[in-house]
C-alpha cells in the first residue's frame, strides 16, 4: 500500500505544466498568423485544428517523457499512440474543462474562453452534438471531483491498451495497465472513503471518452474530405494512417 503513492507520483512526473503548454500553442499560432497577410487570415475552424494539432504534439511529448512508455520499442509506441490519439485529445480537453472551465464556457488550451451557446448557435449539427456530449461528460466528472492523480491514471489506461492490434510486447502493456488500474483503485479508496464506488464511476467514463473520440475522428474525416483540414499536420497524419 505504501508503494502506490510513489507510483502515482512517478506518473505525475511526466505531466506537462499547463502554462508552458499554453505558451507553446500560442507562440505557434502567432507565428502562423504573422506569416500571413491581412486578407489571408485563418478561419475559426482552421485555428481550432491548429490548436488541436499543437496539443497533439504536446501529448506525444508527454508520452515520450514517461518512464513506462520509454520502456516500449518505438514500433509499439507508434501503434499505441496511433490507436488512442483522439481519446487522449478528448481526455485532455475534459480535464482542462474540469480544472479551469466555468459554467457554460469552453476553456481552450490558449486560455481563451468561448461560450457554449455561441458555438451551438454557429456550428453545424455534428459539432454542436459533440460539444454537448463533451459538456455532459464534464458535468459528470466535476460531480466526481476528479483529481490530478485520477486524471493521469485515466490517461495511462487509455495509452496502455493491450487490446490494440499488432502490439508486440502485449504482456508489458497489460502489466502496466493492471498496475495503473490498481493504483487508481487504491487512490480512490484512500482519498474518497465516503464515495464507495468512485473507482467504478471513473472507469465507466472511459467508454464515453472512446465514443466521443470516434465521433470526433468521423467529424474531422468528413471535414478533411471537404478539404477543410490544414495539410501537413500531425492531426491529418494520425487521421490518414488510421483510415488507410
Amino acid at each position: 500500500a505504501t508503494l502506490a503513492p510513489n507510483f502515482l507520483n512517478q506518473l505525475l512526473e511526466s505531466e506537462q505544466d499547463e502554462g508552458q503548454v499554453c505558451s507553446k500553442v500560442l507562440a505557434s499560432l502567432q507565428r502562423e498568423q504573422a506569416s500571413r497577410g491581412k486578407h489571408d487570415r485563418l478561419n475559426t475552424f482552421t485555428i481550432m485544428c491548429k490548436m488541436a494539432d499543437q496539443t497533439l504534439f504536446g501529448l506525444v511529448e508527454w508520452a515520450r517523457n514517461s518512464t513506462l512508455f520509454k520502456e516500449l520499442k518505438v514500433e509499439d509506441q507508434m501503434v499505441l499512440l496511433q490507436s488512442c490519439w483522439s481519446e487522449l485529445l478528448v481526455l485532455d480537453h475534459l480535464c482542462r474543462q474540469v480544472t479551469y472551465g466555468k459554467q457554460g464556457c469552453i476553456y481552450l488550451v490558449t486560455g481563451q474562453q468561448i461560450e457554449v451557446s455561441t458555438i451551438i448557435s454557429q456550428a453545424g449539427v455534428t459539432l454542436s452534438s459533440l460539444v454537448s456530449r463533451a459538456q455532459d461528460l464534464v458535468s459528470k466528472l466535476k460531480a466526481l471531483h476528479l483529481d490530478r492523480h485520477e486524471f493521469v491514471c485515466l490517461k495511462y489506461l487509455v495509452l496502455f491498451n493491450p487490446d490494440v492490434k499488432s502490439v508486440q510486447n502485449r504482456r508489458q502493456v497489460e502489466q502496466t495497465q493492471e498496475r495503473v488500474n490498481r493504483a487508481l483503485m487504491e487512490h480512490t479508496q484512500q482519498t474518497h472513503q465516503g464515495h464507495s464506488d468512485k473507482f467504478g464511476q471513473l472507469l465507466l467514463r472511459l467508454p464515453e471518452v472512446r465514443s466521443i473520440s470516434l465521433q470526433v475522428e468521423e467529424y474531422l474525416f468528413q471535414r478533411h474530405l471537404q478539404g477543410d483540414l490544414p495539410c501537413n499536420s500531425l492531426l491529418t497524419e494520425m487521421l490518414h494512417t488510421k483510415r488507410s
Partner: peptide, 18 residues
Amino acid sequence: KKKDNALLRYLLDKDDTV
C-alpha cells in the same frame, strides 16, 4: 499494408541530445 506515419515515427525516434 498500413501506411506508416512518418511524422509520428520522427517525433518518437528523434534524438533530443543534439
